[in-house]
Design a protein around this nucleic acid. Sequence first.
DNA 1: GCCACGGCTGAACACACGTTTAACGTAGTG
DNA 2: CACTACGTTAAACGTGTGTTCAGCCGTGGC
Lengths: 218, 218
Amino acid sequence: MNVRSEDLTARARIRDAAVARFGRDGFRAPVRAIAEDAGVSAGLVIHHFGSKDALRAECDAHVLRVIREEKSSAIAEKSPAETIGMLARVQEYAPLFAYIVRSLMDGGALAAHFVDGLMDDAADYLEAGEAAGTVRGSSDPRGRARQVVAAQVGLIVMAQLDAAAGRGVAPTDDPAKAIDELTSRTMLAGLELYTHGLFTDSRYLDAYRHFQQDKEKS
Amino acid sequence: MNVRSEDLTARARIRDAAVARFGRDGFRAPVRAIAEDAGVSAGLVIHHFGSKDALRAECDAHVLRVIREEKSSAIAEKSPAETIGMLARVQEYAPLFAYIVRSLMDGGALAAHFVDGLMDDAADYLEAGEAAGTVRGSSDPRGRARQVVAAQVGLIVMAQLDAAAGRGVAPTDDPAKAIDELTSRTMLAGLELYTHGLFTDSRYLDAYRHFQQDKEKS
DNA sequence: GCCACGGCTGAACACACGTTTAACGTAGTG
DNA sequence: CACTACGTTAAACGTGTGTTCAGCCGTGGC
């Protein structure tokens, strides 16, 4: 955690450099750039990992491992929003967050695992909320968890887009600042939405339920 | 719209082939593949557009143009969900949708414009709903629109991730089917969320409001 | 009929990468 | 000391890919 890069074995230094590079520049970042960051030759990178793809797989595994450690170390009373916010806020984890965002937008395997984890967390958290009486019941808890996580994922992707269009900070550049911008811009609306809902009555919901029933009959 | 590819000028054929290829395989698709799809040589692609990047810019412009036409031709009474659903359902527009999704995950400039458009639509739609009494008031209409669009964007991205992980259909492969899968899996939960909200009371919202007030004082 | 021109092609070029290879140095071991 | 093993490097290799080039072909104008 708090070891200096000098203390790490070359293999670990390459891995960390790769995570940082991939996070900042995306997965098209050249092996040579990663090697330079780690202070080694490009050949050594291949020597240790076999190929660039294998290096990326190792990065995936490493990121996933750190996430799991972080998760298990924190008692499971955190909300998914806090999980994300925490990951981004702690400056030490900024490279990890950037890497995850990249993986998200690349459609990588890690991203699928990551959102699965987010959904599990969200489902647990919502269930706990139900038990505590702060969260409403749902006829589709899994779908609701997906919905909640999707909103977070979408906000991150949109923040990345805004940054590419010259507005705001990219989550892959300065995760902490990006998350701050993001929450300050949508937190109020989001909480209002989650507190009062969007519609004034249940006619849309009823309409969909009837539509579903008709569908089953046919 | 309904012209056969034979009738199009080579330039237009290349453009259409590029949109389709980019949508299916992503922007790393080789120029030669696009050329082959269009039945021309790779050189001609460059001859007409100057460079691959310029070709992509042209594709962006074209997609944006078609979207605008489609939008203006439809009276502005459609919900954002319907806009997306319609885009994907109409099989003719499937390549466009795939292209947009790719642009979304690539962080392209088009994607930023596209979500801007979605947000404008959502804001209009919600405002109309407010006027009609079916949608609640909001203290941050813009933020709410962003929130609603983010949920949609997130669901699309997550569908793409699921497909990459071997679950479900990729929006870039079969947009119509992917959207169907997606709605069947989250529509009920989403409508419940938008109808009743997530929380049983306003304590989270109140807490955030107080937090904001305290922040302003200091 | 001939000329010019623009659409078009196939081959060649240039470059950026991932990967391979041969060699070097150094630490540990008999 | 010799020898092996391993971490490491610089240079070379091969390939995929964007782009350029020289020329072909058909069409319209004089």
